[in-house]
């Protein structure tokens, strides 16, 4: 290998991996063919390749290259979303655990301590229906559960901060119901991430709920819970694939909005309700659209499978 080729290879290493794998050797031939007797890339070559690498990376970040099909993202969400949503029951289950430890479960006032129980129970039913293969029934129950979020927000505004940090649950619920109704569905989702993903996410949810119940408001346990949720969801969806990473981002919206909530309190303090809605609903939706997690008019490469 000549010094010139080695230098060009080094410049090409800045390109996105998929582009390098597809075009790297071909680009090298073009560069070498146009190099003549030179021993080093010219400054214009350097600038051109650097600018091209930046543009290609930027296109991939926003999925403008069409390498991510939002329908596939929603298919994975339709498979794993219901299971991920069960994690939302953690706070209520902590209450239940407290009353169990007190030996007074039968006296627990469910309407004040765990009014959202029916909604999480419905998402558990949706998860079972999805695994059972009853997609249509799962979609119907998912819409009922999503409507439940709205009812809870209307009648129990103090139970959860539905317009604020808990907006992520509502968004994932809505997207999961929509995905079960209109996306290629859980069967396609299973083709993309495999059956193992369901097991990995189920274990993740179980551990996260366990940590939330046993370590409620203990900082180390809460932090570990976030690590488990992020790591487990990424592992389930597939952190090496772009569809997997975007699916994980959708499923982790409750973590995102919780983090936004912490940032809001630290930086802004109390803000008007309209600003809360814009921050906790608008911002995540805009981010998902920008990152190709939601449907929009972008073509998939005709000659490239989705990775």
């Amino acid at each position: 290998m000549s010094g010139l080729e080695r230098r060009y290879r080094r410049l090409l290493s800045w390109f996105p991996r998929d582009h390098r794998e597809r075009h790297g050797e071909e680009m090298l031939v073009v560069l070498m063919s146009g190099a003549g007797e030179r021993e080093r890339p010219t400054a214009r070559d350097f600038a051109d390749l650097l600018w091209a690498a930046v543009r290609l990376h930027a296109r991939r970040v926003v999925a403008a290259d069409g390498g991510v099909d939002p329908r596939d993202v929603l298919a994975v969400v339709s498979l794993l979303g219901p299971l991920a949503l069960v994690t939302g029951a953690t706070t209520g289950l902590h209450e239940v655990a407290w009353w169990v430890r007190a030996g007074a479960l039968t006296q627990m006032p469910w309407s004040t301590q765990f009014p959202d129980a029916p909604v999480w129970l419905l998402w558990g039913v949706v998860a079972v229906l999805v695994l059972w293969g009853s997609r249509r029934a799962a979609a119907v129950v998912a819409w009922v559960a999503t409507a439940g979020f709205v009812l809870l927000a209307a009648f129990y505004p103090a139970q959860h901060w539905w317009l604020g940090v808990d907006a992520g649950w509502v968004l994932v619920g809505l997207l999961t119901a929509a995905a079960l109704t209109w996306s290629p569905g859980p069967v396609r989702g299973r083709e993309l991430v495999g059956g193992r993903a369901v097991v990995v996410l189920a274990v993740t949810v179980a551990v996260a709920v366990g940590l939330g119940v046993l370590g409620h408001r203990l900082l180390p346990a809460e932090l570990l819970r976030v690590v488990v949720l992020v790591g487990g969801t990424l592992a389930a969806c597939g952190s090496r694939s772009r569809v997997g990473r975007r699916s994980a981002l959708v499923l982790l919206l409750p973590v995102v909005t919780a983090a936004l909530g912490v940032a809001q309190w630290l930086v802004l303090g109390r803000i008007p309700v309209a600003a809360e809605v814009a921050l906790f609903y608008g911002l995540p939706v805009v981010a998902l659209l920008a990152l190709g997690g939601l449907p929009r008019r972008i073509r998939r490469r005709p000659d490239q499978p989705v990775t």
Binding site: H23, R59, D65, G66
Partner: peptide
């Protein structure tokens, strides 16, 4: 080459 393959990437998409 960089400009060409960026353009081909977009035109293929």
């Amino acid at each position: 080459a960089g400009t060409l393959y960026t353009a081909l990437d977009r035109m293929t998409a």
